[in-house]
Design a protein around this nucleic acid. Structure first.
Lengths: 106, 106
DNA sequence: CTTAATACTTCGTGATATGATATATATAGT
DNA sequence: ACTATATATATCATATCACGAAGTATTAAG
């Protein structure tokens, strides 16, 4: 997929991955994989940004001798998903504009 | 609309605006306006980039005492639109992932 | 003992949207 | 005659951001 196109979907994808249950970095990547490839450096950058924007909260816990950071969505994060749904209407109208066939040609 | 989301649609929007007929900067902004706001600095940056990528060609012509630069789409530009249509399937599956409701909750 | 999987972190780079600013002409209003 | 608005393009500085590369550390499998 086009890189620029991905950019607009990354944040909201990560938020969707923790929407129903808290999760941690490595798991999030695996959950998102069927829909979109995301490298670790990209994910952790995004998680940090979403944390700064208070769209998620973090807690650190030990699991099997390793440390994990669990991320939980906040109300702001849920709002962000709702905003995406609003944006979707505009995206659809743009899609139609781009794919519209020329009437007097073709 | 979310800025990051716009990024992925800007190029393809501009290409769509010249898909059927050559056009010029000021006109392109007006044609795109119903779907997306785009400032002049943004548009001319994009036109330059698309020209470098050979997705469009330019010719300069005088019109009413003013110079205009007319942009015409190339085969590469048309291919770019087709690629967007392919990307669209992935975007749809991401949209479903993001908007999917939790079954055991809600 | 080595490889792969798990798990997170940091850094440098390149791409890029946009506001601000500048230049120049034509037209419409007062 | 003056002023404001619309038309038309160009450049620069800035801030944001995705991502590869490289690193640290543990556990499990072969």
């Amino acid at each position: 997929m086009d890189i620029q196109l991905k950019r607009g979907l990354l944040d909201v994808c990560v938020l969707a991955a923790i929407k129903n249950n808290e999760s941690y970095g490595y798991q999030i990547i695996k959950d998102i994989k069927p829909y979109m490839e995301m490298s670790e450096s990209t994910l952790y950058t995004i998680l940090k940004r979403l944390e700064n924007a208070q769209m998620l909260t973090v807690r650190t816990a030990e699991y099997g001798g390793r440390l994990r950071k669990y991320y939980r969505i906040t109300q702001s994060g849920l709002n962000r998903i709702e905003e995406f749904k609003d944006d979707w209407k505009e995206i659809l109208s743009i899609y139609r504009f781009v794919t519209k066939e020329d009437e007097e040609n073709e």
